[in-house]
């Protein structure tokens, strides 16, 4: 008789061994690329039945929300649904994180806060993608910016369990690795006097990412916007800079001190 593959709920109910979690802390402090760290985290999380996680920059140094994805194998369909519907703008978990430093889960958050109908719908919709719960940790950086680490879980997470403690440690060290490996998205400089208002902050941000070699689709992924919206920003930037191509726009913007070279 063959042994059936255990569903992930069984995995979540097994005792949590701290060894692989501590080993991840080691890797996150010594690995040379974020890819290595990603792979290591994937392996540890797989033992908990978790396949999807994401690290994003929740706010920049001026505490403005960016939602820029920094790393992590996000659940592609859920992310598309989330981005296409502009959910980041209404996500109450994200705004709660601005004032909190504690980890939470979707279940715990729903129990402890009076969430809106929209938020409830969001959690319900996630279930249609097989994501029955999520772990979320806001991490406030010394420079005033904020990271958010989200892990999507196929089963409900028990509060105050060892698994939450393990996820907390993993998320913390994942953010530390992203800081150390310098993968925060480039922020355009503040425009010099006299050049203010030529481009919107969003247009400058898009050009900065083009400068970094990203395609419109990739920038859309990073900024949680659609590819179409990115193309519109770039087109408007070309118009305002009175140039024809995006390459010219990058050069022009750099010459005027609107983006980093």
């Amino acid at each position: 008789m063959s042994v059936a593959t255990k569903p992930s709920i069984a995995v979540l109910n097994e005792p949590v061994h701290s060894g692989p979690v501590f080993a991840f802390a080691e890797i996150s402090q010594t690995a040379e690329t974020l890819d290595e760290v990603d792979d290591a985290l994937k392996k540890v999380l797989a033992t908990f039945g978790i396949g999807h996680f994401v690290l994003y920059q929740a706010t920049d140094r001026a505490r403005r929300p960016t939602g820029a994805r920094i790393a992590g194998p996000m659940h592609k369909d859920w992310r598309k649904h989330y981005v296409d519907n502009g959910m980041a703008n209404h996500d109450e978990l994200l705004s709660w994180g601005l004032q909190s430093a504690a980890p939470t889960t979707w279940t715990k958050f729903s129990d402890e806060h009076e969430i809106s109908g929209g938020q409830k719908l969001m959690f319900d919709e996630a279930k249609c993608f097989g994501l029955n719960d999520g772990f979320y940790l806001p991490i406030h950086q010394a420079d005033g910016s904020m990271h958010g680490v989200s892990m999507m879980v196929p089963q409900k997470l028990e509060s105050d369990s060892r698994i939450l403690a393990a996820l907390h440690l993993l998320a913390l060290y994942y953010s530390i690795a992203a800081n150390r490996l310098g993968l925060s998205p480039p922020e355009p400089p503040s425009p010099p006097e006299g050049s203010k208002g030529i481009l919107t902050p969003r247009q400058r941000q898009c050009l900065q990412w083009v400068r970094a070699g990203k395609s419109s689709w990739e920038i859309g992924e990073i900024l949680s916007l659609s590819e179409h919206t990115i193309n519109e920003h770039l087109e408007e930037a070309r118009k305002r800079l009175k140039v024809f191509t995006t390459t010219q726009a990058v050069i022009e913007a750099a010459l005027r001190g609107l983006i980093h070279i």
Binding site: A101, A165, H168
Partner: peptide, 27 residues
Amino acid sequence: CQIVPRMIDLGWKVDPIGLPVNYGEGV
């Protein structure tokens, strides 16, 4: 947990020997 990124920024390698616990004033 909130202080650890600053310790690491100061160049310490911080190896956990236990999982996070709520100690009453924080985690």
